[in-house]
Design a protein around this nucleic acid. Structure first.
Length: 514
RNA sequence: GCGGGAGUAGCUCAGUUGGUAGAGCGACAGCUUCCCAAGCUGUAGGUCGCGGGUUCGAGACCCGUUUCCCGCUCCA
């Protein structure tokens, strides 16, 4: 079973490359780990997914507007968001409690416990010896104290060394040697110590001495939060309202694998919805339902989606869940829906010294809004569509075909224009038909090879319709429309073709069904 | 990050104990005009992932490196 599913992913990856959807980045130089390029068909599919999302947010909701913030942001942004602290320290997880600690803090705590032990020994001795107690003498001669002190000195020395050299293994060994237990679970079941440096950095300013370090954003959300007031004021937005954004984000993942599921450079489609404090659970439920509906309307199969509640909440959230999708490698996160409270705006207020509040004219009070966030991984969405569309079919006549049953509004090409033969004026007629369609529909023209072969080629890239121009076309202005999924053909008048195809292939019509 | 496997034409692969690369499919051009990939003719593609070593000689052997896949680990 698992093996079969592995093969599906493998075949999808091979198909994606062979038909111009996804290529490994800089492949002629052996590629770059966990970085991929979208090819001629992939770029179209990706743009169509973006369009479906963007229009859903900004056309269907008159209280949601879109922005496009820069990838570079002021470094303090990432202090306020919590990313600098969480991403740049040596961290270690306890596998039982699932809690994450700074390794150096754990070790320092252990040292202070040893110091407390020495102090206790000294107090005990002081009681026993009364006035004759010589503390300095005791501390330098008592064997137990000396043992503790030796351990403290040694630990401090090793901590300094490992921190200085970035020796994570040495730090882990220190945790093991000190028998440090997790205060929550009480176990010593630790992961390796890892330097969390998940943000990519670069320098701004071309003069080396003036250059200052800045980060490539690890999430797009902060671009929305820092623009909260700009948008609210210039757009005269009234709460509740949302700000949507599609853009790239970057994370230097330790392990990035599974094709485009986890990449170092990826794209997010995010909407932050600003609301009154106390109403967050209402809106959280509202957006859970809305977003699920958006996914299911694509028609990839409702059983392939499920909610997954977060048990361990991130530092900013008071409720969070994923919409998971049934990928070839199993159910995995496709979209996150988080109730972020006022964590982000409050933090930006603190760091920037600027008020980030909303004045509510109803009760003449200003407050920091709460936020409900929905965030889709665009590349994951792409993988969801591609992997569920991919079919290896056995036809009635015994032959095979590979078809991408991509929802027509998302398909890279909407229609292929195929003259049955390349003579007798059929190509000219076909070109004329295409010239009429090309403003509204992405067309693909081809006259080479047998018609059946051309149909199969279109199946492989997910073109939902093929128009075939034959000799009868020249007589009565009819063509056949061949359906990708049923492979059935229907003869229709040329004048009816355009509206029919637009009906079936437009993103806007898909939106109407949500 | 650790362990295992793989990297030969666009794709799938072959290449016998080391003697300086092949097939099928595909692509392209022409013929054929046949509505569901399989007719005919011809053409173009590879310094065998990269670097080094052993050897008279390496796609084959050794070392390093890189990319991908699988398992473990990890995953705001």
């Amino acid at each position: 079973m698992a093996n079969q599913e592995d093969n599906i992913l493998k075949n999808v990856i091979a198909h994606a490359k062979e038909y111009g959807f996804i290529f490994p980045s800089s492949e002629i130089y052996d590629g770059l780990s966990a970085v991929y390029d979208y090819g001629q068909n992939g770029a179209e599919l990706k743009n169509n997914i973006k369009s479906y999302w963007w229009k859903f947010m900004t056309l269907l909701h008159d209280n949601i507007v879109g922005i496009d913030a820069a990838i570079f942001m002021h470094p303090t942004t990432w202090k306020a968001s919590g990313h600098v602290d969480a991403f740049n320290d040596p961290m270690v997880d306890n596998k039982d409690s699932k809690k994450r600690y700074r390794a150096d803090v754990l070790i320092e705590d252990a040292v202070s416990k040893l110091e407390e032990k020495i102090e206790k020994e000294a107090e005990k001795a002081a009681k026993r010896f009364g006035d004759t107690f010589d503390r300095a003498m005791f501390l330098t001669t008592n064997p137990r104290v000396l043992e503790y002190q030796k351990k403290i000195d040694e630990t401090n020395k090793r901590l300094k060394e490992t921190m200085g050299s970035g020796d994570m293994a040495g730090m882990k060994q220190l945790i093991v040697d000190l028998d440090i237990v997790d205060p929550v679970s009480g176990t010593k079941n630790w992961t390796d110590v890892r330097q969390f440096n998940l943000m990519f950095s670069t320098e701004i300013g071309s003069l080396a001495e003036d250059a200052s370090k800045i980060y490539l954003r690890p999430e797009t959300a902060q671009g929305i939060f820092v623009n909260f007031l700009n948008v609210q004021k210039t757009g005269r937005m009234k709460i509740p309202f949302g700000i949507a954004q599609i853009g790239k984000a970057f994370r230097n993942e330790i392990v990035a694998r599974q094709f485009i599921f986890r990449m170092r450079e990826f794209e997010q489609m995010e909407m932050q919805f600003f609301i009154k404090p106390g109403e967050e659970m209402k809106w959280y439920e509202y957006w859970k339902e809305k977003r699920m509906k958006w996914h299911q309307t694509l028609g990839l199969g409702n059983d392939n989606y499920r909610f997954h509640d977060h048990l361990n909440l991130a530092h900013y959230a008071n409720a969070a869940c994923d919409i998971q999708f049934n990928f070839p490698m199993g159910f995995k996160e496709l979209e996150g829906i988080h109730s972020r409270t006022d964590f982000d705006l409050k933090s930006h207020e603190k760091y920037s010294g600027k008020k980030l509040q909303y004045f509510d004219p109803d009760d003449n009070q200003s407050f920091i809004p709460y936020v409900v966030e929905t965030s889709v991984g665009l590349d994951r969405m792409f993988l969801a569509v591609l992997s569920k569309s991919y079919r290896e079919e056995k036809l009635e006549d015994g032959s095979d075909r590979v078809v991408l049953r991509i929802p027509p509004p998302l398909a890279p090409n909407k229609v292929a224009i195929l003259p049955l033969v390349k003579k007798d004026g059929l190509p000219e007629k076909a070109r004329a038909i295409m010239d009429d369609l090309k403003y509204d529909l992405r067309c693909f023209y081809e006259e080479k090879d047998a018609i059946g072969k051309r149909y199969r080629r279109q199946d492989a890239i997910g073109t939902p319709y093929c128009i075939t121009i034959d000799h009868q076309t020249l007589q009565d202005n009819t063509v056949t429309i061949r359906d990708r999924d049923t492979m059935k053909q229907e003869r229709v008048n040329i004048s009816d073709v355009k509206s029919r195809l637009i009906d079936a292939c437009s993103v806007n019509n898909l939106l109407r069904r949500i």
